[in-house]
Amino acid sequence: MTDTPVIGVLALQGDVREHLVALAAAGAAARPVRRPEELDDIDGLVVPGGESTTISKLAVLFGLLAPLRARVRDGLPVYGTCAGMILLADKILDPRSGQETIGGIDMIVRRNAFGRQNESFESAVDVKGIGGDPVEGVFIRAPWVESVGAAVDVLAEHEGHIVAVRQGDVLATSFHPELTGDHRVHALFVDMVRAKQAPRSL
C-alpha cells in the first residue's frame, strides 16, 4: 500500500479545476500550485490546458520557470495537456518572441497545428497503454508533435500526426481528457507517479 500521491496542477491560468477533479477521481490528492515553494511538496505535476504564451509569461514573471525546470530535470513526473504539451516540449516550432518552455520531452511541437477554433474537433483516439474503448479526444486549437527524439515513445496519432507522447516520467497529450469525464489518461499518470514513489516508501 503506497501513500496517496500528491499531484499539483500548475494554476497560473487554464482549466485547472477540471484537472483537479480528474486527478482526485483517479486516486490522487490534487492541489493547485502557483508559487515556487508549493513545488516542494508534490510527487507529480499537471500543466493544464490554457494559453501557452500566457502561462509561460506568468511562470517567468513569478519565478516558477527555473524551479519547474529543475524539478523536471530531477525526475518529477509531469503531465501536460494542449498548452501543457507545448510547455513540456524542448522546442517550439513557431514560438512567440520570448516564449519559454519548461521542457522535458525531446520533441518539436507546432502550436495551433490543427487550426483555429472553427477547426477544433472531437475524435476517438487509440492511446497505447490504455485498454478498452478509444479515448474521447477533445482537440481545442490543439498543437501536434512535429518530430520526436529517439527516447520518446509515441502513444497516439490522429490522421498521421502525433498527439500523445511519453518520455520517461513526462507525459503529454494534444487533447483534453480532463474535459470528458473519462479519467483513464489521468489514471495512467497517477500510476506513473506511484511507480516513482514506490522506492521511497520501501
Binding site: 494554476a11 497560473l12 491560468q13 487554464g14 482549466d15 485547472v16 479545476r17 477540471e18 490546458g49 490554457g50 494559453e51 500566457t54 494542449c82 498548452a83 477554433q117 477544433s120 477533445v138 481545442i140 486549437r141 483534453h176 474535459l179
Partner: peptide
C-alpha cells in the same frame, strides 16, 4: 471547452 482554456485569464 474553449472557454475553459481561458479561465484565470
Amino acid at each position: 471547452g474553449m472557454a475553459e482554456q481561458l479561465k484565470g485569464g
